[in-house]
């Protein structure tokens, strides 16, 4: 039996990797993947807590979460595609029309 702490450590690590990835990655698609990593870290910790506490709410939350993440992915990729059509680039540093 794997104890709760291991799950939490893995989920915290995943969350940090995602968080740092969003801040340092330069390609839009990579940023997007790191965002998904953050969501999944939260999913993992919800499921782990749900198992530990023996109540089902955390798992229900996770199922909804996966659905929401899929919907977000659709909109996000659509935005990236329309940007690519207009500007033909995917580096976040180049999107600097709006500042201050």
């Amino acid at each position: 039996m794997i104890s709760l702490n291991w799950y939490l450590v893995v989920s915290a690590l995943l969350f940090c990797i995602g968080l740092i990835g969003v801040l340092v990655k330069r390609n839009v698609i990579m940023v997007f993947l790191c965002l998904e990593l953050m969501l999944n870290a939260a999913n993992l910790s919800l499921v782990a807590f749900s198992d530990y506490l023996g109540n089902i709410q955390g798992q229900i939350f996770t199922i909804f979460n996966i659905t929401v993440a899929a919907a977000e992915a659709v909109v996000g990729l659509a935005i990236i595609i329309s940007l690519y059509r207009n500007r033909a680039m995917t580096n976040v540093d180049d999107f600097n029309l709006l500042k201050w």
């Binding site: 939490l8 989920s11 969350f15 995602g18 968080l19 965002l35 953050m38 969501l39 870290a41 939260a42 999913n43 910790s45 919800l46 807590f49 530990y52 506490l53 709410q57 955390g58 939350f61 979460n65 977000e72």
Partner: peptide
């Protein structure tokens, strides 16, 4: 921010 919010929710739930 949703990612951060979710992680916060999971901790409060825990």
């Amino acid at each position: 921010s949703s990612g951060i919010l979710l992680y916060g929710i999971s901790l409060v739930y825990g």
